[in-house]
Amino acid sequence: FIKTILAMVGKFGITAPFSIIYVYSAEVFPTVVQNGIGMASMCARIGGVLAPLMFFLRHISLEAPMVVCGICPLLGAALTVLLPETANRPLLDTIEEVEGSDV
């Protein structure tokens, strides 16, 4: 029962940022830089590409895939502290605005 709960919490921890990255990147990158959103999308998709390789971790240990799926969301959550705050700030439209801002 505990394994199932932890697996669902881990799945939520991996799936939620996958959806949020599109909304957040649209706020962080200026409108003229569409490559930023594409890069964020590509990085998010790398996890989906590597997910089937988790099968091979079972040869190391039966718990290894669960440990990796537990550590990845925690690491991602810790790294979000480094992201700039976008609440109550105007969205930037040009690269010049980004260079002149404190974001």
Rank of each mutant, 00 (worst) to 15 (best):
G76R: 07
F56H: 12
K3W: 05
S41E: 01
M42Y: 05
F1T: 11
I20E: 01
P84C: 09
G70N: 09
E97K: 07
E99C: 09
T31Y: 06
I46V: 15
I20M: 13
S25T: 13
R45K: 14
G38N: 12
N35Q: 14
P73N: 05
V23N: 07
E96K: 06
R89A: 09
G70M: 07
T31L: 09
M8D: 03
I71H: 03
A87E: 14
I20D: 04
T4G: 02
R89H: 13
T4L: 12
V9H: 00
A64E: 04
K3Q: 08
P65Y: 09
E85K: 10
A64M: 14
I71D: 03
F1I: 02
V49Q: 01
G13H: 05
T31I: 02
Y22L: 13
K11H: 11
A77H: 02
E63A: 14
A16R: 00
Y24W: 06
P73L: 08
S19T: 05
G48N: 09
V68S: 06
T15D: 15
D102E: 13
F1Q: 08
R45Y: 01
A7Y: 03
R58Q: 08
T4K: 11
V32H: 01
L75A: 14
A51F: 12
I21A: 04
T15M: 07
A26M: 10
L92E: 11
G70P: 06
A40M: 09
T94S: 15
V32T: 14
F12L: 15
I21C: 08
E63P: 00
A77S: 13
A78N: 05
A44W: 05
A40I: 01
D102N: 14
D102V: 04
C72I: 15
M66V: 02
S19N: 10
T15E: 06
A44L: 03
I2R: 13
F56T: 07
A44F: 02
E63H: 08
V67W: 10
P90R: 12
V68L: 15
R45L: 13
I14W: 01
I37L: 13
R89L: 14
C72P: 00
G10N: 15
I95W: 11
I46A: 11
N88G: 04
S61V: 03
E99K: 14
E63M: 11
N88M: 01
G36R: 08
Y22G: 03
L92K: 10
V81L: 14
S19I: 03
V103S: 11
S25P: 02
M39L: 15
G48Q: 07
I2F: 10
A26Y: 02
P84V: 07
T86P: 04
K3C: 08
E85H: 08
R58M: 09
V103P: 00
M42V: 05
S41F: 04
G76H: 08
V28I: 15
A51P: 00
V28E: 03
